[in-house]
Amino acid sequence: MEKTITQRSAWDKVLTKLQKRSLWMLHYCTGCGAVELPPTMTARFDMERFGIMPMVTPRQADILLITGYLSVKTLKRVVLIYEQMQSPKYVVGFGSCTINGGMYWNSYATIKSLDQYIPVEFYLAGCMPRPEAIIEGFTELIDRIGEGKANSWEDYYKNYEFYRKNQEHVFGTIDTRTDIPDDAKYFKIGEVEK
């Protein structure tokens, strides 16, 4: 019993080591901060060194990078896009506004903390975070994936009621056409491995 688990996890470890070298990113830049991404991707900092590439649709993406503030209206789209992404998926909050509302703390139209609505893997604090910070954050993420610790996405399946309640509190009911609790059962996410 003990042995099979170790063999499996050894195999798993190898694949995870390979897997962590490829991350595709969907950037959601309706707020500010998009200006920090071109230098991150191009010759100065070159994100592709780590296998991180921008991708276009949520189906292909692993990372959802949300830059700047999120208004209530755009949060709907973020939730839809997040649910359309394929697990494992990692949300990265970029800039102070995603953490606590930042300079929009008083605004009636923006949300304060992103992790109330979708599980966030990590935040990049600052206004703006520089490309160095982004690279730093992503290397950290890569390491965590390699160690198998980047599991925030499972939380959305496990604690869906919590997120759903917060979402509905902001914008009422929406139909994203994805039944998260049922998906969790179907894909056996969050079940304890025997």
Partner: peptide
């Protein structure tokens, strides 16, 4: 595993 979804569960740049 893969799951078959309906035609409205589709990428439309965030449109419902």
């Amino acid at each position: 595993r893969r799951r078959i979804v309906g035609q409205y569960n589709n990428y439309a740049a965030g449109h419902f």
